[in-house]
Amino acid sequence: MTDQGAASAGGGLCAGRVVVVTGAGRGLGRAHALAYAAEGAKVVVNDLGVGLDGQPAPDSPAAHVVDAIRASGGEAVAHGGDIATSEGAASLVAAAVDTFGRLDTLVNNAGFLRDRMLVNLDEDDWDAVLRVHLKGHFLPLRHAAAYWRGEAKAGRTPVARVVNTSSGAGLLGSVGQGNYSAAKAGILGLTLVAAAEMGRYGIQVNAIAPAARTRMTEAAFAETMAAPEAGAFDAMAPENVSPLVVWLGSGAPSDGVTGRVFEVEGGRITVMEGWHPGPTVDKGERWTPSGAGDAARELVQRARTPGEVYGAS
């Protein structure tokens, strides 16, 4: 798999690679699928075809993305399975292997919103968002990893890549999005564990926290940002996020780039540094409650001020 997984000269950065993108019918996923195809990848376009609230939409857009790729001379196939079920996730991997003979890259992107303040957030809205975002990352990752492990054990060590999709809400939290923030934070933890466990099989796992104008964010951006003037750089276009996603999913040399989280917005790329120990104090014996409180207040005063939760001000 190593030779086929690397980009060939003049054939695009992802020539010869087979890439699966979930939630690829619209927004970021669509931009990613088209960008991979433009770099020579064969693309499995997954989209269940649901609305913002997760309910079925009348016309799934996956076929339209496939048509666009084929019209540009690329190769693609649509997949309409529910990747938050084991059967759907297994069929997603099978769609790549059965159609194109292999799988090289998995881009987990599918998701939707059911925003509520915590006191109004019911159990169904919590479960639905955690199911699609977090379980919808875990199951495709699990089935893809099992395929790649089998390849490695057969002596065909893959140049395999996984790109997960988190959010600034997962990094900082977002008022009115407790379910979404929890799911996106969980994706970060899953990314770290997957990178640590799967490196031995030739798999690199990273995550992005993108900011772009999509169906899920257009209302927020409409309130805070004016549309760009004609011919001006549109910093919120989803296509701005895709170049890094394509590179992370390519066979380009990227040793050591695994278990990382990148914020991507417009022309800006930031590698996030995660949790690191800050100020500390060790008494050497058990604290009293009041003593522990005094120590905690003093440590907080010395610590770096955390980023503000989105929507808190």
Rank of each mutant, 00 (worst) to 15 (best):
21 V>W: 11
59 D>I: 02
63 A>M: 12
29 G>E: 04
118 L>E: 02
47 D>S: 08
20 V>I: 10
124 D>T: 13
113 L>N: 15
68 A>F: 12
60 S>C: 11
53 D>N: 14
46 N>H: 12
45 V>D: 00
46 N>Q: 06
41 A>G: 05
50 V>H: 14
47 D>A: 01
99 T>C: 14
46 N>I: 02
33 A>Y: 11
62 A>I: 03
81 G>F: 14
44 V>Y: 10
47 D>N: 03
98 D>L: 05
101 G>T: 10
19 V>H: 10
124 D>S: 12
73 G>F: 09
44 V>A: 04
83 I>C: 14
71 A>T: 07
80 G>V: 07
71 A>L: 13
121 L>A: 07
101 G>C: 09
104 D>L: 04
19 V>G: 11
43 V>Y: 15
53 D>C: 06
32 H>Q: 15
70 R>A: 06
90 A>Q: 10
53 D>M: 03
105 T>G: 03
109 N>W: 11
119 V>D: 12
23 G>V: 02
92 L>D: 04
61 P>L: 09
35 A>K: 00
102 R>T: 09
87 E>Q: 07
52 L>M: 14
43 V>M: 08
98 D>V: 08
110 A>D: 04
54 G>F: 06
52 L>Q: 13
45 V>T: 02
70 R>K: 12
40 G>I: 05
49 G>D: 00
32 H>Y: 15
74 G>P: 01
97 V>S: 11
27 G>A: 02
91 S>F: 12
94 A>F: 08
36 Y>R: 01
91 S>T: 06
93 V>I: 14
113 L>Q: 13
112 F>H: 05
100 F>V: 00
61 P>N: 13
124 D>I: 07
98 D>N: 13
24 A>D: 03
102 R>V: 09
68 A>D: 10
84 A>G: 12
62 A>W: 12
112 F>M: 01
54 G>W: 05
49 G>A: 03
36 Y>M: 05
24 A>G: 06
25 G>T: 03
30 R>M: 07
48 L>A: 03
62 A>C: 08
28 L>I: 06
112 F>R: 00
66 V>T: 04
28 L>F: 13
71 A>Y: 13
83 I>P: 01
60 S>K: 01
106 L>A: 08
116 R>F: 11
56 P>W: 14
123 E>Q: 10
121 L>P: 00
117 M>N: 12
55 Q>S: 15
56 P>M: 02
109 N>H: 15
26 R>T: 09
116 R>V: 02
57 A>R: 00
65 V>M: 06
84 A>S: 15
59 D>K: 05
125 D>A: 11
70 R>E: 11
33 A>N: 05
110 A>H: 05
109 N>P: 00
90 A>G: 13
125 D>L: 04
74 G>Y: 15
32 H>V: 06
101 G>I: 06
68 A>K: 05
80 G>H: 15
55 Q>E: 15
